[in-house]
């Protein structure tokens, strides 16, 4: 991979690896990488004859919120820092028990959607596999697919 980074001239930045095939474009969109040099690999060869997507971004590092969004869209993805064309140790993305202020609750009657009310949307993970979240305010349950849709649509 380091050779590839050299050929792409990414001496510093971030590599998001092991993205489930088909999710790369969605992750590219949510990261809102305007003006950055980005390489998106779709259906790249992965382990055991499987294909995967990858994203390499020059001079850009993911914040906590972006990292969590990546984990929610593609739970198996890994994030690695690139320094001097070298890949730093892999960081497996863990979804914490509580998620705050990442996306809105889809229930329009939820208090977190009330205009000007000083409350952030927050959710508790009630099941990891398959992922299931519950709104801490209105008790609405969300599947991983719904979460992905909310993140991608920017809601």
């Amino acid at each position: 991979m380091e050779e590839t980074l050299k050929s792409l001239n990414i001496d510093s930045g971030t590599l998001i690896d092991n993205i489930s095939a088909g999710k790369g474009l969605k992750i590219f969109k949510i990261l809102n990488l305007k003006g950055e040099t980005v390489f998106l690999f779709i259906n790249a060869p992965g382990e055991r004859f499987r294909v995967k997507d990858l994203i390499a971004v020059k001079n850009c590092f993911l914040g906590e919120k972006e990292t969590l969004k990546v984990a929610l869209i593609s739970p198996g993805a890994t994030v690695r820092r690139i320094e001097n064309f070298e890949l730093k140790p892999e960081r497996h993305l863990e979804i914490p028990k509580h998620l705050t202020d990442l996306f809105k609750c889809p229930n329009s009657k939820c208090i977190t959607n009330k205009e000007r009310e000083p409350v952030k949307p927050s959710f508790t993970v009630t099941q990891r596999e398959p992922l299931k979240l519950k709104c801490d305010y209105c008790d609405r349950y969300l599947s991983r697919e719904e979460v992905e849709e909310l993140i991608v649509s920017g809601k």
Binding site: K109, C110, I111, D136, Y137, C138
Partner: peptide, 25 residues
Amino acid sequence: PSEGASKLAAEVAEAPVINAGDGSR
């Protein structure tokens, strides 16, 4: 009428809050 309103109220109030109905929740 908003679902979860009583939880928000309980967070901001010192006094105990009793939910007397919040939306369909």
